[in-house]
Simulated scan of single mutants.
Amino acid sequence: MSQGIDLLHTSPDENVTRSHEQRTRPPGVWADPEAHLTAAVEHHWYRAVTAINASIVNSTSSFYQSRNISPVLMPVTVSSVSSPMGLGSDSLPVQIDLMGDRTYLADSMQFQLEFMLRHGLEGAYYIMPTFRGEDADQTHLNQFFHSEAEIRGGQDDVMSLVEAYLGALTEGLLEGSVGNQVERCAGTTDHLEALLKQAEFPRITYDEAQDLLGSHAFTLKAPGAPAITRDGEQALIERFGGAVWLASPPSITVPFYQRVDKRGRAHSADLLFGVGEVVGCGARHITGKETRRALVDHSIAESEYTWYVRMKEDYPLETAGFGLGLERFLLWVMQHDDIRDLHVMPRIAGTRSWV
């Protein structure tokens, strides 16, 4: 278990006391389509969101280009659901009828990224919408944007990639007018500057976290499938100074496609900071045999993943990847506490959208 340093954890209330005279606050009218239409055009908060998103997209492109990781174009529908699939998940895939065919809106295109690496690429990435069957609240959206990448290599490789990527995004957000926008909304850029001082984030395993926090910080989603609570995530964030990897969960709590060690722990990790989990990453099964065994262990019918298993059998390859939720990252960047304020064009189940 690595120890952290108190660099990244800054609450919105603390920012108020050490910021400029006034912070820009969101209008909070995402549930009112008529009021939001005006706010989305006129309010500085949404202009700042647009500028910050542009910086993230530009920094993402530059970062991956420097590492010979290729952008790829993906559809928005899938026949095989990748995530959420673990017993620890609180959401469901979104099934639709598309011209008479049963299909799903993209929850993640991780499988397709794995497929693209069979073209000889060193890595592949995209930023695109993700759809989840869950109710929106202050920390969850049923439609959000995902920055995902898949590379050749293992779990340590992808964790290092995530840390470097976050550094590149943060550098971009501190530059010029974008940095001014962040400071106006967040009240400070100290948290961004602090992140750049860390070469890597501390790591703790699930077993270590359970010993450290006690069973009250975890809930059983199913027998043998403990999932950390939101309070548990915040306790770890506080303990490690603002950002920490929570690694090696029991394999049954994560999707079937993550590699498993001899102790039944998955080759995966979540990066916790700000609101909680912002990044999830993991190494994938290499062979068809491993993948089949995992499907059985997770009680999932192989018929739903025939093409994926065949890919592993015919073209085995060691890969690992991650997904970063953009709006959760923006919550931390802007030191805000309601993720529903981060869409210029809201898409929230049960709320009509005009824009």
Rank of each mutant, 00 (worst) to 15 (best):
N53R: 14
W45L: 02
T50A: 11
G274R: 03
G167Y: 08
A35T: 06
Y257N: 09
D297M: 12
A209C: 07
L37C: 12
V254N: 00
N180Q: 09
L173N: 02
F115A: 14
H267W: 14
G224R: 13
F144Q: 00
I286L: 10
E318A: 12
P346R: 01
A225P: 12
L295I: 05
D231Y: 07
E34F: 09
E327H: 04
K289F: 04
R25G: 08
E163L: 05
Y315S: 14
L141R: 14
R118F: 10
E208S: 15
T229V: 07
M74L: 11
G154T: 08
E233N: 07
S108W: 13
G187I: 12
P346N: 03
I5C: 06
S353G: 09
G242A: 08
T306H: 10
S251G: 05
S268W: 00
I348A: 06
T50Q: 15
G154I: 10
D297R: 12
D156K: 11
R284Q: 05
M99D: 13
E318W: 00
D97R: 13
S268V: 00
D90Q: 13
S108M: 05
Y64H: 15
C281P: 01
I286F: 05
L196Y: 02
L161N: 10
E21S: 02
S79D: 15
H343C: 10
Y315N: 02
L246Y: 06
V162R: 01
G288R: 05
S303Q: 08
M159L: 10
G86H: 00
P27V: 01
G154D: 15
I127M: 12
D13S: 08
I204N: 01
V76S: 10
L272H: 08
G187L: 08
G232D: 09
Y46V: 09
G350K: 05
V344P: 01
D32I: 03
D90P: 02
V355M: 12
E134K: 06
E302K: 05
S89A: 15
G325L: 06
R284H: 06
V344K: 10
M109L: 14
A235F: 01
F111I: 08
R292V: 05
P84L: 02
L73V: 15
P33H: 08
